[in-house]
């Protein structure tokens, strides 16, 4: 079983559209939406939920006002500035529990926190594991880890060849959680100075965690000079560019219709993604993952 995670560094480069297309192209796979705080893949795959599980993670401090004698020790020691006027500001509390341990009147308890849900669903392209992190919650990385673990379990149980994950933007906690131990990172970039800057950082993260990376340049024709520079940037780092996808409004039209681009149009975008998938699946069958 191979695990391919689609990342980008910069947001909005087309990760979800690509994953939607791969969902329609790959034969034997489970899909995972690892962008747990702004998940969009379900809008293309239109899943029917089969199983819903609560995600309990982390704790939040609560002060019992009847027991609190307002000594202020908790406020003084909290490094997250989460206690003000003897009240816990929940969005700032990181659940470390220092206040609970030090409170001389034992007025502070740590309450379990329900941070979201994760789901196993059916789609016409195969099973999908996805999640919804509660608004303003912590621990997105842990929820991503659960999604990946469940997706791998489904793949093993059903003897599927691939786990294909839609990753979050950025390079921090949820990205690291989506990436570590994967067989391949497919990095979707765009030929803008921001895209190039962000690609460099996400390539660094792949290197840091020893995951082989390959690059797809989306909307390559909005700036062909930047596309050439991106290709050079990749070749200097011995990273393959597996696709150059042109800008086409058909991609947005397919999102509005709620279907993967490869089922909506047989234009250049589709042809390029089909070729890309052949390359990726051929390559990953030929070599063993790191």
């Amino acid at each position: 079983m191979k695990e391919i995670v689609v990342l980008s560094g910069k947001g909005g480069t087309g990760k979800t559209s690509i994953v939607g297309a791969l969902a329609a192209l790959a034969q034997s796979k489970v899909l995972a939406d690892c962008d747990v705080d702004a998940a969009d893949l379900h809008l293309l795959l239109r899943p029917s939920e089969k199983m819903r599980t609560e995600f309990w993670s982390g704790k939040v401090a609560r002060i019992d006002q009847d027991r609190c004698d307002e000594c202020g020790l908790c406020q003084e020691l909290c490094r997250f500035h989460a206690i003000r006027d003897f009240q816990v500001e929940e969005a700032s509390c990181e659940g470390c529990g220092l206040c609970h341990h030090v409170c001389p009147t034992e007025a502070i308890t740590m309450r379990e926190n329900m941070a979201g849900h994760w789901f196993i669903s059916g789609t016409r392209y195969g099973p999908l594991v996805h999640a919804r992190l509660g608004i303003a919650q912590e621990n997105s990385g842990k929820l991503v880890a659960v999604v990946r673990q469940q997706a791998r379990k489904v793949a093993e149980e059903q003897a599927l060849d691939y786990v294909i994950s839609d990753g979050p933007p950025g390079i921090g906690c949820p990205v690291i959680s989506s990436l570590s131990g994967a067989s391949l990172a497919l990095l979707v970039t765009e030929p803008t100075l921001s895209g190039m800057h962000d690609l460099d950082r996400v390539l660094g993260v792949c290197r840091h965690f020893g995951v082989p990376a390959t690059v797809c340049i989306n909307k390559y024709d909005i700036n062909e000079e930047n596309t050439r520079q991106t290709e050079e940037q990749c070749s200097r780092q011995a990273v393959d560019v597996v696709a150059r996808i042109p800008f086409d409004n058909a991609v947005t039209e397919s999102i509005v219709r709620g279907v993967p681009i490869v089922e909506y149009s047989d234009g250049r975008v589709t042809r390029e993604i089909v070729t890309m998938w052949r390359r990726i699946s051929g390559a990953s069958e030929g070599s063993s993952p790191a």
Partner: peptide, 14 residues
């Protein structure tokens, strides 16, 4: 602000 809705976003908007 960074994209998303989780802790870094809250930290930035606060």
């Amino acid at each position: 602000v960074p994209p998303g809705t989780s802790c870094p976003v809250v930290e930035a908007i606060k």
